[in-house]
Nucleic acid binder design. Sequence first.
DNA 1: CCAGACGTTGTT
DNA 2: GTCTGG
DNA 3: CCAGACGTTGTT
DNA 4: GTCTGG
Length: 241
Amino acid sequence: MCVRYTLHDVNEAIAVIAMALARKLIPPPSWVDPRYNITLTNTVPVAASGSGGAEIRGMRWGFIPTFQRKVEDLRMWPNAKAEKAQKSPTWRDATKHRRCLVPANGFYEWETVGSMKYPHLFTLKDAVPFAFAGIWEPAGDGLPETFAILTTQPNSLVGKFHDRMPVLLPADRMARWIGADTLEDSVFAELTQPYPPERMAEREVSRYLNKSSNQGPECHGPPEPRNLKKPDSEPQMDLGI
DNA sequence: CCAGACGTTGTT
DNA sequence: GTCTGG
DNA sequence: CCAGACGTTGTT
DNA sequence: GTCTGG
């Protein structure tokens, strides 16, 4: 699952999208603060087609299908499987007509050891910003625009930690993804392939990240030492009884 | 994803 | 809204 | 026809 | 243990 990501260089990430789309894209000044720990329900900058072409809008992460908008049963979806997005009633219309680019600098996956959770940061090589392949749902019923990030099979790097990974779009794929016209099956399949692992980097970061209200650069601090209370070489002392 | 809450009644 | 199961 | 589901991930 | 909020 991809439910946390970082957008800590908003201007640069949006500049990459603007370059790829040959558009002038201006993020509202209130959104340019670094966000190292974005998660569900957060409102973030997203590039989507507007009346005058691509633009940056604030959308809430957590796709709420129009048919589920009953106040007593509001469920939101962080991800949609690329393998099902074109056919499923939940995702199909958005996949055909409301594809967006979600600017990012990296995303996180966790390694569980016993009861401890150790976060890992995944980026592109050389820390190049990229976009997640997103789909969005219109505002209505008092709800804002919401979006989901597509997932696909993991590559060998992400696969060490999880069995899914988000669909990553580098600059040369952005223009083909965004838009309101249905993609050819072959184009959709190509764009949603797992990103090549040799073009990515991974490193463990501080558990400060685990708390989703922590949004600062400390999230990328060095990992804390792991508690080695049971070295294999030393037998545990018998505590008796 | 992880962290944190998870309950009732009556009174303010 | 749209599809599936009965 | 109507009723009910429609989703993801991780974990078991 | 399980649900909710971020």
